[in-house]
């Protein structure tokens, strides 16, 4: 079989082309929007729950440092919700972006994923600061009683998660560099 015969064979395949009415597409688009809103709302509810719980602690706890820590966690949660709102809307791409040439589309997509991974510190950093003050407050009045075991339960998973995010971002950057090299070599 030669090239042309293979192409003819490929093009003669009988596949279901699918028939989608405009009403169905509108319904699908609405369902997709609802799903996105649901995901977003989930993040907002989590942030609000943390703010409520630590707000309550800030109200009832006796140690000033712990109360300051709780207040910082509340502020951190609000900051998290603000970041979620801001970055979420930045990440939204217009539908026509799907019609970009593949290399451009793919590169932008990888860069968006990389930036989202790198922004993890912006999401959890302020909350983490509040937690640190809170835990420091637990060690008062005698700093020798600092609860290292409790702290490690917070700190180790956070360090692992942040490291994993940065490692994944680094891998995406390598892919982006490969795409750039592909284009540069084509231009030589």
């Amino acid at each position: 079989m030669n090239d042309q015969e293979l192409k003819s064979l490929w093009q003669s395949q009988t596949l279901m082309t699918g028939s989608y009415s405009l009403e169905q597409l509108q319904r699908d688009a609405a369902a997709f929007r609802r799903e996105t809103v649901r995901d977003h709302t989930g993040g907002m509810i989590s942030g609000a729950m943390v703010a409520l719980i630590f707000g309550f602690y800030a109200w009832v706890l006796p140690v000033t440092l712990m109360r300051i820590g709780c207040g910082l966690v509340v502020l951190g949660s609000f900051f998290f919700m603000y970041q979620l709102q801001r970055r979420g809307s930045i990440r939204k791409r217009p539908p026509e972006a799907l019609a970009l040439p593949f290399i451009t589309y793919f590169r932008e997509d990888l860069a968006r994923q990389r930036d989202a991974l790198r922004s993890v510190l912006w999401y959890i950093g302020p909350t983490l600061l509040g937690l640190s003050v809170f835990v420091w407050g637990m060690a008062q009045p005698n700093p020798a009683d600092f609860p290292w075991q409790v702290t490690s339960v917070f700190i180790i998973p956070v360090v692992v998660v942040v490291a994993m995010h940065f490692f994944a971002a680094h891998r995406l950057q390598r892919k982006i560099d490969q795409l750039d090299q592909l284009n540069e070599s084509a231009e030589i």
Binding site: M16, G18, Y20, L25, D28, A29, P95, E96, L98, A99
Partner: peptide
């Protein structure tokens, strides 16, 4: 494949607003 085809048609319809 059917799901993906539907996804492509949906994306195509949405994208054509910017054509």
């Amino acid at each position: 494949r059917q799901d993906l085809l539907q996804e492509v048609h949906l994306a195509l319809w949405q994208s054509l607003a910017g054509f």
